[in-house]
Design a protein around this nucleic acid. Structure first.
Lengths: 188, 188, 188, 188
DNA sequence: AATGAATGAGAATTCATTCAT
DNA sequence: CATGAATGAATTCTCATTCAT
């Protein structure tokens, strides 16, 4: 009758468990482990996600959604640099506050299991930020470059900065600031 | 008394096959597939590499060695910018000329199978370039930042640029140039 | 909520199959053969026994338990010789009635897969008989010898007698009786 | 041209290595290990023994031959008890002096690889002792029992005694003596 | 729906034996 | 003959997915 089974709680539990387990063990973690960690039976997992691959795709979207949410709400009136700084800071905060989610997301991003459709959906989630980036690009040195290129360059600098913040917490604030300045020089 | 000496050709064949297969199917490609692709039997693979993990570690070093070789030979007298441009260009050329190697290397770089020892060895291969980067950093805006951070930022921009070059060959030259300018602004 | 409960029948089927197959082919019999013989799939065997080694250990305990059960119930009031004769006779009867179990048990007893813990458990099963042996020893020529030595000597005579009974059924009763007299002379 | 290849030294080296390795690792020790331990190449092993099974069979005969040699030379004039004691003592000495050989022999004795033909050959080696045993039997309580039965009973007591001597060296002499008295009571 | 046992197609290795050198 | 690489069948164990309860 219903495509979506009843308990959304369980769906969440599975996705949360998957985030934790994948962060710790990688994408090859057995579905049985995910189920156990979620407190359900291994069979039940497949009433919520038809295949492991589908679970991964949905998790990718969920995590990206959450991450995107953390970036939005930037002050549209402020100078561009302020806006980007706001996004950058929130991004870094989200990543360092949720290192498991960050790691799972990074693993998923390079997985062959993630379909092009899923990637398209995920990208759309960043639309708001993409709009901001668009404005940044238009007024900066990369105004001739294609938008995806600019976005990817920024993202790669952000990811790298996150890694340093996560692995070197004492200097996290420092890394965050330097990372931003670097990124701003690159594309701002 | 040498019987059939352990053929270097065969070792190469395995590593080459692994590069291809891993680029296409990922690190979880069965050893049997690697063997078949290398034109040897199942069991023979293990006379050349005791475990799959060892094969991956050696492949990582091989690929990194090759990549590093492609970057070196930059003109030590020229202005720093020239030197970096030289490295950048060669790097991009190597990556776009050998997309399989590039992809395999990228997958290996994030694999849990690669040991810290192997990573240390691989890093030492880049010593020459690291020296150049050191000089760049010292004279640029990142002079206060730790060297690994600067290296990682540059690398991430390079990787991103490569991806665009590989997936959009018509504009490869363009991407290459824009990527370099962006990187130079960021850290030069 | 019990789904398919882990069937005790199936566990038994595996152990029985293992007994038969091991008696016929030795301890190196493939797990796949045990599974086939038990009428289950390859993989199912491992839901009942995590490893082949664990299966062997449990089988050892099962067989020893059964054997020990066959020995007990000797008449505590009767003269020692009567009691021992009772044990001896039951022992021989069990062995000749279940030659597969006997052979499997003999193979397991000398296997490196059987852990010290398992051996300890198995020995405890013979406690009642050991008590009897203790009384026999105390009143006989071996009263100065350590108990394990006496037990081992008796066991070895019993094992030998069994072999003859099994391989020469027509004279089994004869072997049984002569074996007992010999053993009683040795330690009674 | 020649059934037997040249170097008897190598044959010996292989058999000696096999004794050591099998004592330590069991009969499933790889032929490659035996070869390495013997200081030859794995391929060479098969010019001396066509199959692993043949190697095991020959080793069994060799060890049994050596053991039999250690038992012989008993004083034919002395009283039977003296003669048996002589045999028993030499047997124990050989076993405790060469625990590897003893263990390898014990493992081989229960192996399925040993053919009936080999067993027949091995038994013939004990002919001298068997003759002595025959005389013992004829004058003792087992005069009605078949000779193989008597021999097996004695052997089992001897094996058990050896085990205790080997695993409890401080009391080896004690075990040896008690074992003999027990055996003599049983069959003398 | 939920459960967890059942399934069976792999996966990485191992190893006796063969064969090119 | 010696060598040791080559072979490929065999082995234990894993895991996504299905299905009986």
């Amino acid at each position: 009758m219903m495509a979506r089974p009843k308990s959304n709680d369980k769906r969440r539990a599975i996705l949360d468990a998957a985030t934790r387990v994948i962060a710790a063990q990688g994408l090859s973690a057995p579905t049985a482990t995910l189920a156990r960690e979620a407190g359900i039976s291994n069979g039940s997992l497949f009433t919520y996600f038809a295949t492991k691959s589908e679970l991964l795709n949905q998790l990718y979207v969920e995590l990206k959604t959450e991450m995107a949410a953390a970036l939005h709400g930037f002050p549209a009136e402020a100078p561009l640099r302020e806006q980007v700084l706001y996004v950058w800071t929130n991004w870094m905060r989200w990543a360092t506050t949720h290192p498991d989610k960050r790691r799972a997301l990074a693993l998923l991003a390079v997985s062959d299991d993630i379909t092009p459709e899923t990637r398209a959906v995920a990208n759309r989630l960043m639309a708001g930020v993409t709009g901001l980036m668009e404005r940044v690009r238009a007024g900066g040195p990369l105004r001739e470059a294609p938008m995806p290129f600019v976005g990817a360059m920024l993202t790669s600098l952000a990811e790298t900065t996150m890694d340093f913040m996560i692995h070197d917490p004492p200097n996290a604030a420092q890394h965050c600031a330097v990372g931003f300045e670097t990124a701003w020089r690159a594309i701002g």
